[in-house]
Nucleic acid binder design. Structure first.
Lengths: 210, 210
DNA sequence: TTTAAATTAAAACGCATGTTTAAAATGCGC
DNA sequence: GCGCATTTTAAACATGCGTTTTAATTTAAA
């Protein structure tokens, strides 16, 4: 005897799917509530505001991803030798675990992350830093250990280039996969994009600085 | 005796500045016309629609950048040896020339490009391909020559990772430079970001594929 | 069963957007 | 200086947004 989905969860599920496809600002509460088959006003009743809904959608993923990632990074940090590639490989597992939040979870999360960074500048970045700042710090530390020749400032920038390439690949993912399929006759899955991405990122971070 | 700026140009200038700072969708025609000190309706009179205005703003840059880039790539294509780094260095000059369109032209253009890709998915990409498809094709050819070991599909994806990192670096540029300045005490100019970016991109493209 | 709280529902509010309209102003060849 | 085409202006339009309100309904404890 399964309990029917609560209104709150119906909203979260519908919002997440629409956010991941069209972005936060481009998705209206009316679309969300129509998809979720709930009343428009229930969003503000259960979440207070659209902004709070966005945070709730993101939190559902971050609260799964961040602890898992933290543990992976902790384990890696006890290794004698640390490579950039090993650091990025730490993301694999935790990202895959997101399928427990939702089918297509990894892809959806990265899309959300992309829109979060390009749309609402401070808002969500501050939330992430406040709640999971230690994970980010550990990540930076490990990347620096893997590349001691790079200055902290250099590493800061490269990490954001990494984020940019990742996020962009996901946001433009559907359109690009379409083009790729047409031009190269191969159907490329979202997970494959990550496979192609990681070597690229590691190569970029490890590159000589001049 | 200088002619006063025409209404059309006043709109273009104001729109460009606001688009580069806040993106296309986040900028309203009322903000634009207020900054330009022209009437609201004149945008639709001179350009027909907001979408057409966006295209006009981008065209002003693309028509300067693309021929210059095309020539650089042509010159490079006659070299016996082609490296990834050399391909990316072809962008330096043409990008710098954009200061003739407008002071801060290079930065503004890259910001516009960023928003163009993240916001209006097809629209502008189709325009670019239609008008400057040969330049893009040449770019892909040269990158393949520099990395014959990579399959066309692989190169396709890496080129888009490149675009993602670039675009993201510019869009998040102001916010990130602020953080960097606070954390590392160094004031980083927009041009410096490009200096840091190019080695990263070349390293990523040249990375082994597995 | 009664009653108070929690939830859902329909409607409206206030505001901002891109666009259109129609009149006023301006520029310019004759 | 006249007359016509171009341009500018102010106002309104239609639409969509997030949010609020108020009433109806459901839920669950007494």
């Amino acid at each position: 005897m399964v309990k029917r989905l609560t209104t709150k969860d119906k909203i979260l599920n519908a919002a997440e799917a629409l956010f991941a496809e069209h972005g936060f600002e481009q998705t209206s509460l009316r679309q969300i509530t129509a998809d979720a088959q709930v009343n428009l006003a229930s969003v503000n009743y259960h979440f207070g505001s659209k902004k709070a809904l966005i945070q709730a959608v993101m939190a559902r993923y971050l609260e799964v991803l961040m602890p898992a990632l933290h543990q992976e990074l902790q384990t890696l940090s006890q290794q004698p030798q640390i490579t950039t590639r090993a650091v990025f490989d730490c993301f694999r597992g935790p990202l895959q675990e997101l399928i427990h939040v939702c089918r297509q979870g990894p892809t959806i999360f990265l899309s959300l992350l992309g829109f979060a960074y390009t749309e609402i500048q401070g808002h969500l970045r501050r939330y992430t830093m406040a709640h999971f700042g230690d994970v980010i710090q550990l990540l930076l530390t490990l990347l620096h250990a893997a590349n001691p020749q790079l200055s902290p400032a250099e590493m800061f920038w490269r990490l954001h280039f990494v984020l940019g390439a990742t996020v962009f690949a996901q946001v433009s993912g559907p359109a690009l996969r379409e083009i790729a399929a047409a031009d190269f006759g191969e159907a490329i899955e979202a997970d494959d994009v990550l496979e192609r991405l990681i070597p690229f990122l590691a190569g970029g971070v490890d590159a000589p600085s001049k």
